[in-house]
Structures are given as structure tokens and as C-alpha cells.
Design a protein around this nucleic acid. Sequence first.
DNA 1: GCGTTATTGCAAAAGTATTTGCATTATCCA
DNA 2: TGGATAATGCAAATACTTTTGCAATAACGC
Lengths: 123, 123
Amino acid sequence: MKRKTNQRNAIQEVFRKIDRPLGINEILETGRRTVESLNQATVYRNLKILVERGWLKKINTPERGALYERAGKEHHHHFQCRQCDRLFEISGCAFNEQSSTPPGFITEDHEVYLYGICSSCRD
Amino acid sequence: MKRKTNQRNAIQEVFRKIDRPLGINEILETGRRTVESLNQATVYRNLKILVERGWLKKINTPERGALYERAGKEHHHHFQCRQCDRLFEISGCAFNEQSSTPPGFITEDHEVYLYGICSSCRD
DNA sequence: GCGTTATTGCAAAAGTATTTGCATTATCCA
DNA sequence: TGGATAATGCAAATACTTTTGCAATAACGC
């Protein structure tokens, strides 16, 4: 990554504007509002670069596959709406790793996914 | 599903013998120890049948994609070993859905994945 | 045991997600 | 303001996972 491009900029803009984990299509479609010609391959290439650079984090979700969110956030979990399928970040963590770990096992990390209806779909 | 076959039987036997969520390859390979000719398409077809029949449950995991486990178990979570990649069932649930749900959202369900080292890999 | 037909095995096809080759375009530094 | 070359767009190629068509096989009711 040695040059600034409108494309990469548009991709980053998408994440600054929409604060939740995004999939390739959502990034592509939203990014195209800024750079009409934005191409899927370009999105993939830039996502990879932005992850390497530590600007994005790739997360694998059970239901929606690979999504990307801004890196550097505190430990948090996710909520997936069953109506709109969007994934939301849930701040904080009320989960006790230790008490759930089976005897003899060593837990290093954990992820929690909530499923239900988001506030805007509930209205 | 109107006839008993050695193939389906072998597949069910795999789940009776190995009590943790299994992927297609593991099912196929283990099943072949009983029915040598066991084919991938047969496994897929039978998994579908066994899920419909309520004997198996399909779970989508973040790291390992679709896995199958015996249906009818109580609410539980999963532990994935970073060494052997196997997924284990964790009985019980110490997670408080309510306290983690953002205002305005409605949580209907949740999943927890722990990551670390399983007891047999730790030895 | 025999015949009907559910099941299987095999290979090809289909559905997704992601990557890559290459000609064209656009950055940006001398 | 060129020019070197990073980055893009496009289409084809990969890489998986799952499904399907079809001939061969095997259950099981009579």
C-alpha cells in the first residue's frame, strides 16, 4: 500500500460511516455510492491490506461467514438480527470464561453471538 | 427414509461413538471403518434425513463451518481446541442473555464459543 | 426367493467465496 | 509534468462445500 486511492478511501469511509461488521457485498454496494466503478476484486484486495495494516479485523460469524469491523475495539460480542440479518456490536462482556471451562481445558478466548430482533426492526 | 441401510447405520454409529460435533470428513472417514464403500454423497443425503427426522442437529460454527451433533441435548455451548481443532460440547450455561442485550433489542437465543487447548492436547 | 423401488456410488454440476493474470488507469515523486 | 509502477477493473481461474443425474445395488413386503 504505497499510494492513496479513491477506492481504498471509499472503503474506509464505509466503515467510518457504518459502525457494525460488514460483509463484502455491503462494503461493495455502499462504497460504490462514492466510487461508482468500485470492483469486488479491489474490495477484497483492500480488505486484506487493511487487515494487515491493523485497521480492520476479520471476524468469522456462524451465520454470515466472513465480516469485517474496525480493529482496535475493546473486547465485545455481537448481536445478529433475525429480521434484517445485520450484525451489531455489543459493548461489554458479562461472560465468565473460567466458570464455563471444563476441567483440564484451558480457555484462551471466547465469542458470544446473540440472536433476536434489533431495535429498528422491532419498531 | 423407508429402509434401513448399513450406510445410515454406520453414520449413526459414528455419532453414538464420538460425542462431539462432527464435520462431513470426520463422519465419512469414521463411517468407512464400518462400511468401507461409504460415499460422501450418501453422507450428505443421510445427514439431511437425520436432521429432518430430528435425530441430528446442524450447527454452523465460526471456524469450522457446518458440523452435526446429536439433537435433543440441553442448551449448551462449545469449546474449540486450537491445537486439534476438535469442537467439544460444554454442558451448562453461565451466560445472562438479559444483561447483555442492548436497550431496544430483543434477544431470543445465543451461542458461546470458547477457544483454547483441550485436555488431551494439553498433556 | 422375487420384484419393486429406496438407496447408494460415482462423477459431474452447481453455488459461493476468494484469488489471480493482465491490460489499463491513476498516483506521486524527481 | 513526465514516468515508473502501484492499484484497479474485468474476467477467468481457484477453492470449497453441497447437490444432482443416473445406472447399479440392496431392502423388504408379498
